[in-house]
Design a protein around this nucleic acid. Structure first.
Lengths: 237, 237
DNA sequence: AGAAATAAATGTCACTTCGACAAGAATAAG
DNA sequence: CTTATTCTTGTCGAAGTGACATTTATTTCT
């Protein structure tokens, strides 16, 4: 039996070798036909030259969500109140960072129409990449697992929450919202049925009264996000 | 702007003030008519005498899930392979522990028919308490938030996963499974409709061919958990 | 032993929802 | 003015759901 696993009152927490705590972000956006994720190219060891999820160490007096929010605004240039940010999962395998014991609290962000990525101070480059490409890359640390968890969370949440709207501009058409679903899920949805189900889900979207002219065809009515956060019933995948 | 938030390559992780990392467990069981949670009475400061979730510090070379699993077996006496254990969320507010900066990775466990709780080395007492009672208590640290997250996660997961079976013995009747749902959700379900929907959900349960005699009335067929993990369609709450 | 009580299991039926598709409406291009 | 395109609305059979009745198997009571 491992004896020093459980805090038994005789152990002073400060006696333990220190952990470092970081946040890593899976920042997703929809750029049809791809779901894209923001990656940074690491400038320093370990994994110098590898692509990685943006992130950083948590300050000694800093809240976890503040650290994630700071990274999000720093890397994307996006205001916090226009993006969705939620905690994803925590990765703490003893071997995940060769320097020392590092526990990473991963966050998932969903943003709409981000400006082009710019390399920050700590990265050689930053780039929006299709998730399919990112999966084919060897990412630093255990970031492939983190990315997978983030994409799966996003997929699932579109089913039973209204979060798809956070991938859209403040004003959007039904086709744009549908394209978000089709891009994230990688399947085609029936436009008439999608239309009916979204409008039938109370508080999902509300009409603006305006229309958006298309390149071809009938202009589309525009909507903004409604007050609802959960979808009952869920939107079937 | 906070400058030391983001790792910029010039910082050595070992330069950062140390974090301690703990795991805290929301261990739930169903004892009709109550959903119950395992609490320990703290023997040491801080919060000596207060009820808290079981947990402990993560060892320097220990995986997070191993730390949670060790606490689970230590406190409940239950084998890991008979219980469900999943990561819940991570709580890291700078003020949550007065001693030092502590980040707690919370886990959610679901167990069936646990033996009576026994106070471990580090606790004055351990007790299964109805969640409603635990909510009325002032729990140590931010454990009230952790408990709330755990209960909500459990409620939600019963809808779209087969995890209700992890609250049941290896062999169970349809009424027992239904009681799990009714206890966790706090509502009554229609027995005939529940029966139909569970059997109609492929891989949720499989018949054992045996029956269990009741105190009164017709004996019930017994079932064991099937291979499915997700419920499509979900079971409506 | 027979009747009553109890709980499980199965069946019924109106109502709703869903998927597939047709039809109508509004606009730009030819 | 016609055609092509896209959004929007409508139709209909199939499947699913909730409410409730009926049947079956057992124990308990008389």
């Amino acid at each position: 039996m491992i004896v020093n696993v459980t805090f038994n009152g005789e152990y002073n927490p400060a006696d333990f070798p220190p952990f470092a705590v970081t946040t890593d972000l899976v920042i997703l956006t929809v750029r049809p036909p791809s779901l894209e994720v923001l990656l940074v190219e690491r400038a320093e060891e370990p994994f110098a030259g590898s692509w990685a999820l943006p992130g950083g160490f948590v300050g000694p007096e800093q809240d976890l969500s503040d650290a994630a929010g700071a990274t999000l605004t720093d890397k994307t240039g996006i205001e916090l109140d226009t993006a969705h940010l939620e905690q994803l999962a925590t990765f703490g395998s003893p071997a995940r960072d060769p320097r020392m014991r590092v526990v990473s609290v991963a966050y998932l962000a969903m943003v709409a129409n981000p400006p082009p990525a710019a390399a920050g101070r700590d990265a050689a480059a930053a780039e929006w990449q299709p998730v399919s490409s990112a999966r084919a890359t060897t990412l630093a640390f255990d970031h492939a697992d983190v990315l997978e968890a983030g994409v799966e969370r996003a997929r699932a949440k579109l089913e039973y929450t209204t979060l798809a709207t956070s991938f859209c501009a403040p004003e959007f058409t039904m086709a744009e919202l549908r394209t978000v679903y089709e891009t994230v899920w990688g399947i085609a949805l029936d436009p008439p049925n999608f239309h009916r189900k979204v409008l039938g889900s109370a508080g999902f979207v509300e009409p603006t009264g305006r229309t958006a002219t298309q390149a071809k065809g009938r202009p589309a009515k525009t909507y903004r996000a409604g007050p609802a956060t959960t979808l009952t019933p869920p939107l079937a995948r």
